[in-house]
Computed example of a mutant assay.
Amino acid sequence: MRVTQGCFSFLPDLTDEQITAQIQYCLEKGWAVNIEFTDDPHPRNTYWDMWGLPMFDLRDAAGILMELTECRKVYGDRYIRMSAFDSSHGWESVRLSFIVNRPKEEPGFHLERQEVGGRSIRYTTRSYAVDRPEGQRYGDK
């Protein structure tokens, strides 16, 4: 199972050269780039941990890639994504987000079905990863 979130999610993983090109695009637009990581990639989990602070003042793609490299050294067994924030008036939100690192094994999600009143059916997705404690969800088993 391959988690598909954000831009480029159905493409093969981006190379560092391709990631640098995307960072450069964001910087040319004046967007601030930040790096986030998680071991619970559920689609509704919007609160990923931040690697440092958003890089509002960094205007060099190589510097941001260096931060990504450092994040990969520490959290290379987790999902890492880059987001580009547009602070201009009227937008003030994330304009681009994409995964730049994933664990070697992606366990996927379980679909839970629940029948409720009136013959209605509810579905819930649950990540198999959350069966293990945080920090131990990926890697050696």
Rank of each mutant, 00 (worst) to 15 (best):
L96H: 05
R59V: 08
I23A: 02
D39C: 08
Y123R: 08
D77A: 08
R44F: 11
D57W: 00
D60W: 01
D60L: 03
R2N: 09
A129E: 04
D57P: 00
D57N: 07
D39T: 00
G76W: 04
G135F: 02
E112F: 13
E115N: 06
W91A: 15
C26P: 02
S83T: 12
F8W: 12
D140S: 15
D49H: 11
A84E: 02
I35R: 00
F56V: 00
I19W: 00
P12H: 08
E92Q: 14
W91V: 14
Q24H: 15
L65K: 09
V33Q: 01
P43D: 01
F10Y: 12
I99K: 07
D57L: 04
L111T: 06
P12K: 13
R81F: 02
R72N: 05
Y47A: 11
D49S: 04
Y25M: 15
S88L: 08
S83I: 00
R2Y: 07
D86C: 12
S83K: 11
H42V: 05
Y75C: 11
W51E: 06
Q22R: 15
D13K: 13
D77G: 08
G30M: 12
W91K: 15
C7H: 11
W48V: 00
I64W: 04
A62S: 10
S97M: 14
F98T: 07
D131Y: 07
S87Q: 09
N34K: 14
L96C: 13
Q24F: 12
P133N: 04
G30R: 01
D39Y: 02
R78Y: 13
V33A: 06
N101S: 14
V94G: 05
D86H: 04
T38V: 06
H89E: 13
I99E: 09
W91T: 15
L65H: 05
Q136F: 12
Q22W: 06
M82C: 04
W48C: 02
A62I: 10
N45V: 01
G118S: 03
T38L: 03
Q5L: 15
P12T: 05
D86K: 06
N101R: 09
R95K: 15
D140C: 13
F56A: 03
M82S: 04
G63R: 06
R59W: 02
S120E: 11
I35E: 02
P43Q: 05
S9R: 08
H89R: 14
Q24V: 10
D16Q: 05
Y75I: 07
C26V: 00
R122L: 14
V74D: 09
D39F: 02
T69F: 07
A62R: 11
L11A: 14
Y138F: 15
Q5A: 13
H89C: 10
T4W: 00
Q136Y: 11
F85H: 07
I80P: 08
L65I: 08
T69L: 08
I23T: 03
W31R: 06
S120Q: 14
R126W: 03
Q24L: 10
P107A: 02
M82L: 15
M50P: 04
D13G: 09
A21C: 10
E106P: 00
L68Q: 02
D39R: 09
R119Y: 09
L11Q: 14
M1F: 05
Y47S: 12
I99M: 13
W48T: 01
L11C: 06
